[in-house]
Structures are given as C-alpha cells and as structure tokens.
Simulated assay, not measured.
Amino acid sequence: MHCSGTMRSIAEIAGLLQQPAQIVKVLVGDLLDCDALELANPVSFAREIVDKELLEALLEGLQKL
C-alpha cells in the first residue's frame, strides 16, 4: 500500500490513488471502523519532528516581512 509505514494525509492518499478526497475519506473511515487502518496522532508526530533551529529561522524570516 502507498501508506505502509508512513503517515499520509487524506489529500496525499487521494492524489496517489487519483481519486476524489471525499471518496478516500469514506474509504479511510471504513478501514478505521474495521480496525484495518491505524490513525496516527498528529500532535505526537509533530513533536517528534520539530526542529528548534528551523522554527527560529522561520520566525526570523516572518519578522523580516
């Protein structure tokens, strides 16, 4: 599957499958209901990938605007 071992958004999955996002949302919902798919916690994932230096550079760039 396109998502095996990787977190992906509904939009990414829809793009990979070349299907409308609404269709993919229904499919993902059905897969979640039958425990065939695991929903990742985006908050905990975001904490793992946050790079303080990157955020500081982003803030600095925004302040220059």
Rank of each mutant, 00 (worst) to 15 (best):
M1R: 08
G5I: 02
S9V: 07
I10Q: 12
I10R: 07
I10C: 07
A11V: 13
E12T: 11
E12A: 12
A14W: 03
L17H: 08
L17I: 02
Q18S: 15
Q19F: 00
Q19T: 06
P20S: 09
A21Y: 01
A21M: 10
I23L: 08
I23T: 08
V26P: 06
V26M: 10
V28E: 08
D30C: 00
D33S: 14
D33H: 14
D33I: 02
L37S: 04
L37Q: 00
L37K: 09
L37R: 02
E38I: 05
E38L: 06
E38C: 04
L39V: 07
L39M: 15
A40D: 01
A40H: 15
A40L: 13
A40N: 13
P42F: 05
P42N: 06
V43K: 12
V43G: 03
S44V: 13
S44I: 11
F45G: 01
A46E: 07
R47L: 12
R47N: 10
E48Y: 04
E48Q: 12
I49E: 00
V50D: 14
V50L: 12
D51E: 11
D51I: 07
D51W: 06
K52I: 09
K52Y: 12
K52N: 03
E56T: 10
L58Q: 11
L58S: 05
L59Y: 02
L59C: 08
L59G: 04
L59T: 10
G61D: 01
G61K: 04
Q63C: 15
Q63M: 15
Q63I: 13
Q63T: 11
Q63Y: 15
K64Y: 06
K64C: 04
K64L: 09
